[in-house]
């Protein structure tokens, strides 16, 4: 099911991008710079979302042990106090 959604979104991404960048007339004075700028903005927008999710989880993972460690220390501290 999850794989199916992934495949579908991949095709949607492909067709949307293809429609956006489908060649029109070829120009005599070709400058590939503009096309490179545009496609990187499109790709980076798509990637940005998954990058954000990944970073969010990484931060959560980083943060979690700290909470546990903090609680453990607090607990140990209480024990010592006794």
């Amino acid at each position: 099911m999850k794989k199916n959604i992934l495949v579908k979104s991949y095709f949607v991404f492909f067709f949307v991008c293809y429609a956006l960048v489908m060649p029109r007339l070829a120009h005599a004075y070709l400058d590939p710079g503009t096309g490179s700028y545009i496609i990187q903005v499109i790709i980076a927008s798509v990637l940005g979302a998954s990058f954000a999710v990944r970073h969010f989880w990484q931060n959560i993972k980083k943060f979690m042990p700290r909470i546990f460690l903090k609680n453990k220390k607090k607990y140990d501290g209480e024990e010592d106090a006794k």
Binding site: F14, L20, P32, T34, G35, I39
Partner: peptide, 10 residues
């Protein structure tokens, strides 16, 4: 897509 984009926006 990068190659297509270069052609499209040349």
């Amino acid at each position: 897509l990068h190659a297509q984009s270069q052609k499209r926006y040349a």
